[in-house]
């Protein structure tokens, strides 16, 4: 026994004080930091609560003004607050039109680009083409607005005639919006295509399928949920996009299906109204919250659906 103790390491503790040494220490700093970090995480929750609360509160005020009737808001086709007409349909209609034009560009081109990049492109082609799409994605939307007004609109007027195409029109804004959204759709779709395992492609090639047949009949269906997710996100982006439509789609609500005519969208309306002298607690002020709430609701639902779909293909392949 005695000899044992002598050979023991000098810093070995005796059994009596071991429980003291191991006793839990209060680390106030550690707890404070953890609390602070948790608060940081909570700020995003507060943001959401803030959005829902403020949009909801002001929307309630809006709908409680005597001129505004909930049913008329959703069913009538004149938006003219100055004469007490609050029908949101003209704004929704032009939002839908610009969105559809944007998607006519972004969906086919985005998907085709994704197929090219994922299934055909050599390493070198990818390394040139992908950064170009990334640059396109990084250009501020106000610049796209400028592009729509100074390039796309004159181009459309040149093709269809200056008499037919107004300076402000939903088509020009929509098409440029499509170019803006194209990189988003292509990169999300490409992610979905790349997530399809190689073995599936090899199986198709092994059966004598050509590259096109493999891409279209095997890879594309396997990546479908991810591609649909990309489409939905693209739609959500188009609906929420403001600057392009504020610059190029026209200011002034108009209920028209003519793509060559100007018509203000929901976002364009919010931007125009709040850009002027906006007095608190007027129907104008409250109306941007009501339209904002509508916008928030639509995009939120689209985003949630899209994320569900992405989660689905990740679950399958990753």
């Amino acid at each position: 026994m005695a000899s044992m103790e002598i050979t023991q390491n000098i810093n070995q503790s005796s059994a009596q004080n071991i429980s003291t040494r191991l006793r839990r220490q209060t680390r106030i700093g550690e707890n404070l930091i953890q609390g602070f970090l948790f608060l940081c995480g909570m700020i995003s929750i507060f943001t959401t609560i803030g959005i829902v609360f403020e949009l909801g509160k002001e929307s309630l005020l809006f709908f409680s003004t005597p001129e505004v009737k909930l049913i008329e808001f959703f069913t009538t086709t004149t938006w003219q607050p100055s004469i007490g007409k609050f029908g949101v349909l003209p704004l929704v209609n032009s939002t839908l039109m610009t969105t559809i034009f944007a998607m006519l560009i972004a969906l086919p081109l985005g998907l085709a680009a994704a197929i090219y990049l994922s299934e055909y492109a050599s390493h070198k082609a990818r390394s040139i083409l992908k950064p170009i799409l990334e640059i396109l994605a990084g250009i501020p939307t106000v610049v796209y607005g400028y592009f729509a007004l100074t390039f796309m609109t004159p181009l459309l007027r040149g093709i269809f005639g200056e008499d037919n195409v107004q300076i402000y029109n939903t088509l020009s804004a929509g098409l440029v919006m499509g170019i803006m959204i194209l990189p988003l759709v292509s990169s999300m779709s490409e992610d979905a295509l790349s997530a399809v395992p190689r073995s599936l492609r090899d199986a198709a090639y092994g059966l004598g399928a050509t590259r096109l047949e493999t891409a279209i009949k095997i890879v594309l269906p396997a990546a479908l949920s991810g591609i649909i997710a990309a489409f939905i996100i693209g739609i959500s982006r188009a609906i929420g996009e403001t600057m392009i439509v504020a610059v190029a789609a026209g200011s002034g609500p108009a209920f028209t299906f003519n793509p060559f005519k100007g018509a203000e969208t929901m976002t364009g309306y919010i931007a125009r109204i709040s850009g002027g002298d906006l007095a608190y607690d007027t129907p104008d002020y409250n109306s941007i919250f009501a339209i904002g709430l509508l916008l928030f609701g639509i995009t939120l639902i689209l985003n949630i659906v899209s994320r569900r779909l992405v989660a689905k293909y990740r679950e399958v392949y990753e």
């Binding site: 040494r21 191991l22 006793r23 839990r24 220490q25």
Partner: peptide
């Protein structure tokens, strides 16, 4: 044991 600090361990 609950009073033991894993960091010390």
């Amino acid at each position: 044991a609950p009073e033991v600090d894993p960091v010390q361990v």
